[in-house]
Amino acid sequence: MLVDTYSKRIFNMAYQFAGSYQEAEDLTQDIFLKLYNSLSKFDFKRNFSAWLLTIARNYLIDQYRRTKWEKQTRDNFNDHYLTSEAFENPEEGAVKEENKRTVWQGINNLTSEIRMAIILRDIQGKQYEEIAEIMSLPLGTVKSRINRGRLQLAKILKEKKERRNEM
């Protein structure tokens, strides 16, 4: 069934994109509603999961443009993600956890298109070709957006580290 197979993927995509758990649940419901309405238009020659992710991507970006989530704050990283990893070196572990929190919050500074590209590539680990299909963009554009997103996040991480060092 569609819900069993795809709900986790769509919900995680929505949560990573919006940054709010409650919002992500509502968005997931809306995306499934949209999916049921569009099922009759599905072209069987296409890859279903890429098609579904395209619907999700379009809906998320539309909603983002309409409501501008970037003005809102994201949930704290540890609100829903648990730190289960045990590090041999506690200091290194603390730095990694801090990095994760900074990068998670930093996603809010990315534009909707760059944010989506980064989520698909770096969080979900998709191939560039698949991302280009989901985002209906040329491969080169996808690669350059991902590079821009990573640079932006790296610069945010740099600022955070500099501020920490000053303290």
Binding site: S7, K8, F11, N12, Y15, Q16, T28, H80, Y81, E85, K96, N99, K100, T102, V103, W104, I118, D122, I123, G125, R150, L151, L153, A154, K155, L157, K158, K161
Partner: peptide, 20 residues
């Protein structure tokens, strides 16, 4: 910048999937 980019990518790939 390059080493921070690596750290960024590592942090992002470490974000786990949540259960519904």
């Amino acid at each position: 910048l390059f080493s921070l980019m690596k750290e960024t990518q590592e942090s992002l790939s470490d974000i786990p999937e949540l259960e519904v």
